[in-house]
Design a protein around this nucleic acid. Structure first.
Length: 271
DNA sequence: AAATGAACCTGTTTGC
DNA sequence: TGCAAACAGGTTCATT
């Protein structure tokens, strides 16, 4: 389900609903998702003091100095519902909160995972230690991308999806960004000029910011904490449009497979 | 070293 | 229509 804009949309929706809420009880319907779940009952009686995001991870800061780290995988969703609401299908965890509401985690494919880490050094954990910069921060500079691409023979699409290079760019926004930058997705990263990589940095930022402003992209089932879909899918130029015409040049959008993922591009506009 | 493919799961779409 | 194969927003691990 989620790339960076979708996770950020979830974070924005959850933060005001959770900040200052005490966790009254926890109901766990299974002991493991992708990995075994941490002991979530340790959170009973604790208070959520904030919700942050790093890469595609949600970070629930707890008042005892711990951070509940949660990755949504492909189909993970968080919803805030009244406590009396029946558990939905594929609902694996329910946190009952003060003031009669509950935070529910639902995840059909169960690729999501969670951990309970110490807030002050969570970035040393294996999930975070090798991550590259946030794409919307100044650390994701033109020089950083030039450095990461230099002498690399891998296709540029694979490089911008490499979380060690830059985080948060998933399969949708990789295709959309390369289209906007006019760069062919199979081009070797090390054979792209510095000005073109500079343009790529700029458009990755633009695409992600526009998607966040639109509340994310809902392809089949992405919804935010209020159960509302995002609208950025209406803005796709290439993703999922294979066989249809390019809005710019009228040629057919192509679909290929790279590293096991579908890539969409225009062979005329992207070189 | 770096790149591909499989694996983890279930639900939905596509194609014969 | 019905069934099976293909495919889906992510990440990690094993195998070239």
């Amino acid at each position: 389900m989620p790339e960076l804009p979708e996770v950020e949309t979830v974070r924005t929706g959850l933060e005001p609903l959770l900040r200052g809420r005490e966790i009254a009880s926890v109901i766990c319907h299974r002991s493991s998702l992708r990995y075994p779940l941490p002991d979530l009952t340790a959170l009973v009686g604790k208070t959520v003091i904030g919700v942050r995001r790093r890469a595609k991870y949600l970070l629930f800061d707890i008042d005892d100095g711990q951070t509940l780290v949660w990755h949504l995988g492909m189909t993970g969703q968080f919803h805030v519902l009244p406590q009396q609401t029946q558990a939905g299908s594929h609902e694996h965890v329910c946190f009952n909160l003060s003031y009669g509401q509950s935070l529910r985690y639902r995840d059909a494919r169960r690729f999501g995972y969670a951990g309970l880490l110490h807030a002050e050094d969570f970035e040393k954990h294996a999930w975070f230690a090798a991550l590259g910069p946030e794409p919307l921060s100044d650390d994701f500079s033109v020089n950083h991308l030039i450095e990461a691409c230099s002498s690399r023979k891998a296709p540029i699409k694979n490089v911008i999806m490499d979380a060690g290079v830059v985080v948060g760019v998933g399969n949708i926004y990789a295709s959309e960004s390369l289209y906007r930058a006019g760069i062919h997705p199979t081009r070797a990263a090390g054979r792209i000029s510095a000005p073109r990589l500079g343009l790529l940095v700029k458009v990755i930022r633009e695409v992600l910011e526009e998607a966040i402003d639109a509340g994310g992209s809902s392809i089949s089932d992405f919804v935010n904490a209020d159960g509302k879909p995002g609208y950025f899918a209406h803005s796709f130029q290439v993703y999922g449009r294979h066989g249809d015409r390019c809005f710019a040049c009228d040629k057919q959008i192509k679909r290929i497979s790279q590293a096991g993922r579908s890539t969409f591009y225009c062979s005329s506009c992207q070189r």
